[in-house]
Design a protein around this nucleic acid. Sequence first.
DNA 1: CCATCGTGGTTGCAATCTAAAACCGCGTTA
DNA 2: TAACGCGGTTTTAGATTGCAACCACGATGG
Lengths: 177, 177
Amino acid sequence: MGKRVSHKDSLCGVARPLDAIGDWWSLLIVRDAFDGSRRFGEFQRSLGLAKNILSARLRNLVAHGIMDAVPAAEGGPYQEYELTEKGRGLFLVLAALRQWGEDFFFAPDESHVLLVDKKSTLPVRRLELRAQDGRILGPSDTVIRRPPNTSEMETANRQPRPAKRRASKSRTQKERP
Amino acid sequence: MGKRVSHKDSLCGVARPLDAIGDWWSLLIVRDAFDGSRRFGEFQRSLGLAKNILSARLRNLVAHGIMDAVPAAEGGPYQEYELTEKGRGLFLVLAALRQWGEDFFFAPDESHVLLVDKKSTLPVRRLELRAQDGRILGPSDTVIRRPPNTSEMETANRQPRPAKRRASKSRTQKERP
DNA sequence: CCATCGTGGTTGCAATCTAAAACCGCGTTA
DNA sequence: TAACGCGGTTTTAGATTGCAACCACGATGG
């Protein structure tokens, strides 16, 4: 975890999310949360990871505002974890990942779980990226564009935003010249 | 990347992709590849990671069929790396990640790169998951369904005790039959 | 009332993995 | 032929992982 994923975090719209998620486990935790898991033990049983790891990941997800630790749920003295709005925003990321997985990681005859629409009980449609006018866009139909750069010097001087994390434990923060 | 992400890889359509990608760096490499990078040095300069790491990640991506190492490109004695079909399939995953990043990781006034349609030079539309009939689906409108096929009862297969440890070198952590 | 179990963690520690830097081979340029 | 950039591999310290053991606490339970 303790890897600043890039020295360019501040401007890469992909690296920041990755950094916040933390690692693969976290994404699987989120996935399970979408699936209805709420309790520590549920996640642990479902994922089969060590308790300390799960503990750390949950803490990290909470610290990044992806999940919330709600003090109790139904009288029990225990905590439950639920996705925040931000966490629910990962839905499409997971969906995309799942579709990619279905496309390339399963033999055609191999059975696998799939995402179905509750109402119709039919599989969901394929995700597609579209232009404003509705054309479907592929990898080569798009470019990354840097918008009219407001105040150029900002790129070097970044801290007015609460972007940087200071977790409760020493996260070996290097970087940040 | 030595973490088998789950003992249930074989049935999780999310864990498999994650496992193949390997780690965050790999995703950023793929991102750069979509952006036009092809050469070792390009990736390195763009990402700022150590060469051994880049080397390992590229090797891993190639091993998983996400990128191809093409022996030469234009006479040079060097190799270039390009996305395979499978690799290009990550386009939507990256797009979803980017949109999530835009939604939650940038202050409203903060400038950031964005994905635009080449032809119209307008930003792309928002991704959305739809049902067969076209309804837009949110996290709570879907379920994971496991198809009737195949007598999969492996979820119950929890080895009660893997025996004593000590001296279990276990060359690599592969445990997947 | 004491024992035991299940849950939700934290702590300790060995083994493993990461990544910065040094090093290497090979064409090119000077 | 020396110097250089490119594409990588090896070296090495130090960070991370994850198993197991431990702790706290409530619920059984006998």
